[in-house]
Amino acid sequence: MVRLITHNLLACHAKGCTTNNFPLKLTDVKLALREADFNPDFLRGFLPRVEWDALIQASREIGDTSLPVERPEMLDDDLLRQLHHVLLEIHIDEGSMTCPNCGHVYPISNGIPNMLLAEHEIW
């Protein structure tokens, strides 16, 4: 299942597409909510690693507005719970991810994003 934790790591890799190639824009999404093990140590450690602007953009694209626009300095309990929910409990089962630079579309099907390119699209 693709969640926003994974989406935050993906970038377009079509031939010649090296700048402004992320975050991939999420559209036509079918979502599912599933509880996940809550691990505050992970969230605190992951906070400086996440591309916050990309996470905010993606979460709004799939209809969640719970996170603050600015990256928080500290995570209080409420924020930890919200971040946990947005990163790890919202599953994108179906949808499309479009490169903001070249427009390449990567489909998400049965919860699995397909990053394979056709032969002529590869480096």
Partner: peptide
Amino acid sequence: RTAGGSDKIREVVRGDVLDNGWRRGAFD
């Protein structure tokens, strides 16, 4: 994805190990 049919869902991506479909240096 389902770790062999359990209720735990794993994060998986379809792609080639020779492709670069990630932000550069995104992983620890």
